[in-house]
Protein backbone atom coordinates (compact mmCIF):
# COMPACT_ATOMS: atom_id res chain seq x y z
CA UNK A 1 0.00 0.00 0.00
CA UNK A 2 1.29 3.45 -0.97
CA UNK A 3 2.41 5.60 1.94
CA UNK A 4 0.43 8.75 2.61
CA UNK A 5 2.34 11.97 1.91
CA UNK A 6 0.21 14.96 2.97
CA UNK A 7 2.38 17.53 1.22
CA UNK A 8 2.42 15.87 -2.19
CA UNK A 9 -0.73 13.75 -2.35
CA UNK A 10 -4.14 15.11 -3.29
CA UNK A 11 -5.61 17.05 -0.39
CA UNK A 12 -7.78 15.06 2.01
CA UNK A 13 -10.87 17.20 2.68
CA UNK A 14 -12.33 17.49 6.17
CA UNK A 15 -15.58 15.73 5.20
CA UNK A 16 -17.89 18.21 6.93
CA UNK A 17 -21.27 18.87 5.33
CA UNK A 18 -23.17 22.09 5.84
CA UNK A 19 -27.00 21.82 5.88
CA UNK A 20 -28.63 23.26 2.74
CA UNK A 21 -29.49 26.97 2.87
CA UNK A 22 -27.73 27.35 6.21
CA UNK A 23 -26.02 30.58 5.15
CA UNK A 24 -29.20 31.96 3.54
CA UNK A 25 -30.83 32.38 6.93
CA UNK A 26 -27.80 32.81 9.18
CA UNK A 27 -27.51 36.59 8.78
CA UNK A 28 -31.19 37.24 9.65
CA UNK A 29 -31.15 34.81 12.59
CA UNK A 30 -28.04 36.49 13.93
CA UNK A 31 -29.43 40.02 13.57
CA UNK A 32 -32.62 38.91 15.32
CA UNK A 33 -30.60 37.51 18.20
CA UNK A 34 -28.53 40.70 18.49
CA UNK A 35 -31.72 42.77 18.48
CA UNK A 36 -33.25 40.55 21.19
CA UNK A 37 -30.12 40.78 23.32
CA UNK A 38 -30.01 44.56 22.96
CA UNK A 39 -33.67 44.80 24.03
CA UNK A 40 -33.25 42.46 26.98
CA UNK A 41 -30.08 44.23 28.13
CA UNK A 42 -31.93 47.58 28.07
CA UNK A 43 -34.73 45.95 30.10
CA UNK A 44 -32.18 44.72 32.56
CA UNK A 45 -30.88 48.29 32.86
CA UNK A 46 -34.38 49.69 33.45
CA UNK A 47 -35.14 47.09 36.15
CA UNK A 48 -31.77 47.84 37.68
CA UNK A 49 -32.52 51.57 37.58
CA UNK A 50 -35.87 51.03 39.29
CA UNK A 51 -34.14 48.83 41.85
CA UNK A 52 -31.42 51.40 42.35
CA UNK A 53 -34.03 54.08 43.22
CA UNK A 54 -35.40 51.74 45.89
CA UNK A 55 -31.94 50.94 47.16
CA UNK A 56 -31.00 54.65 47.30
CA UNK A 57 -34.23 55.44 49.17
CA UNK A 58 -33.64 52.66 51.68
CA UNK A 59 -30.03 53.73 52.15
CA UNK A 60 -31.11 57.35 52.75
CA UNK A 61 -33.75 56.25 55.30
CA UNK A 62 -31.18 54.09 57.06
CA UNK A 63 -28.66 56.92 57.21
CA UNK A 64 -31.29 59.31 58.65
CA UNK A 65 -32.35 56.69 61.26
CA UNK A 66 -28.79 55.95 62.31
CA UNK A 67 -28.02 59.70 62.40
CA UNK A 68 -31.03 60.45 64.60
CA UNK A 69 -30.24 57.57 66.92
CA UNK A 70 -26.59 58.65 67.20
CA UNK A 71 -27.65 62.26 67.89
CA UNK A 72 -29.87 61.25 70.79
CA UNK A 73 -27.29 58.81 72.11
CA UNK A 74 -24.73 61.58 72.07
CA UNK A 75 -27.17 63.92 73.82
CA UNK A 76 -27.82 61.30 76.47
CA UNK A 77 -24.12 60.72 76.94
CA UNK A 78 -23.49 64.43 77.14
CA UNK A 79 -26.14 64.79 79.86
CA UNK A 80 -24.65 61.94 81.87
CA UNK A 81 -21.12 63.22 81.32
CA UNK A 82 -22.22 66.72 82.29
CA UNK A 83 -23.78 65.42 85.50
CA UNK A 84 -20.69 63.34 86.28
CA UNK A 85 -18.34 66.26 85.65
CA UNK A 86 -20.57 68.53 87.69
CA UNK A 87 -20.51 66.13 90.61
CA UNK A 88 -16.79 65.45 90.34
CA UNK A 89 -15.48 68.88 89.66
CA UNK A 90 -18.33 71.22 90.58
CA UNK A 91 -16.77 72.79 93.69
CA UNK A 92 -18.65 76.02 93.46
CA UNK A 93 -21.79 74.81 95.18
CA UNK A 94 -22.40 77.12 98.05
CA UNK A 95 -24.48 76.52 101.15
CA UNK A 96 -26.94 79.00 99.69
CA UNK A 97 -27.28 76.82 96.54
CA UNK A 98 -28.23 73.83 98.66
CA UNK A 99 -30.48 75.86 100.93
CA UNK A 100 -32.45 77.10 97.92
CA UNK A 101 -33.60 73.53 97.29
CA UNK A 102 -34.64 72.84 100.85
CA UNK A 103 -37.82 73.85 102.62
CA UNK A 104 -37.96 75.66 105.92
CA UNK A 105 -38.84 72.38 107.63
CA UNK A 106 -35.85 70.61 106.07
CA UNK A 107 -33.59 73.33 107.29
CA UNK A 108 -34.85 73.23 110.86
CA UNK A 109 -34.60 69.42 110.95
CA UNK A 110 -31.06 69.61 109.63
CA UNK A 111 -30.16 72.19 112.24
CA UNK A 112 -31.54 69.96 115.02
CA UNK A 113 -29.59 66.94 113.74
CA UNK A 114 -26.36 68.90 113.57
CA UNK A 115 -26.83 70.21 117.09
CA UNK A 116 -27.67 66.78 118.50
CA UNK A 117 -24.25 65.16 118.18
CA UNK A 118 -24.08 62.15 120.39
CA UNK A 119 -21.54 62.18 123.16
CA UNK A 120 -19.17 59.72 121.45
CA UNK A 121 -18.91 61.89 118.36
CA UNK A 122 -18.34 64.92 120.50
CA UNK A 123 -15.53 63.17 122.40
CA UNK A 124 -13.98 62.07 119.11
CA UNK A 125 -14.03 65.59 117.74
CA UNK A 126 -12.57 66.98 120.90
CA UNK A 127 -9.77 64.39 121.09
CA UNK A 128 -8.63 64.18 117.50
CA UNK A 129 -9.61 67.33 115.71
CA UNK A 130 -8.84 70.01 118.27
Amino acid sequence: MKKIDLENDKKIESGFKIPDNYFDSFEDRLMQRIENEETSSSKVISIWRRKSVWISGMAAALIVSIGTWMYFEQQKNETIEFAQDYLAYGNEITTEDIAKHLTEEDLSNLETEINNFDSKTETYINEYLN
Binding site: S14, F16, K17, I18, F26, L30, E37
Partner: peptide, 23 residues
Protein backbone atom coordinates in the same frame (compact mmCIF):
# COMPACT_ATOMS: atom_id res chain seq x y z
CA UNK B 1 -17.83 28.82 10.14
CA UNK B 2 -15.18 26.55 8.58
CA UNK B 3 -12.65 27.65 11.19
CA UNK B 4 -15.04 26.93 14.05
CA UNK B 5 -16.39 23.69 12.57
CA UNK B 6 -12.84 22.35 12.29
CA UNK B 7 -12.48 22.92 16.01
CA UNK B 8 -15.86 21.79 17.39
CA UNK B 9 -16.63 19.26 14.60
CA UNK B 10 -20.43 19.19 15.00
CA UNK B 11 -22.64 21.51 12.90
CA UNK B 12 -25.09 22.59 15.63
CA UNK B 13 -22.23 23.46 17.97
CA UNK B 14 -20.47 25.33 15.16
CA UNK B 15 -23.67 27.30 14.54
CA UNK B 16 -23.89 28.27 18.24
CA UNK B 17 -20.23 29.28 18.40
CA UNK B 18 -20.45 31.23 15.13
CA UNK B 19 -23.42 33.20 16.46
CA UNK B 20 -21.64 33.85 19.75
CA UNK B 21 -18.61 35.03 17.80
CA UNK B 22 -20.54 37.59 15.75
CA UNK B 23 -22.48 38.77 18.82
Amino acid sequence: YAHIRNMVLNHDDADDVLQNTFV
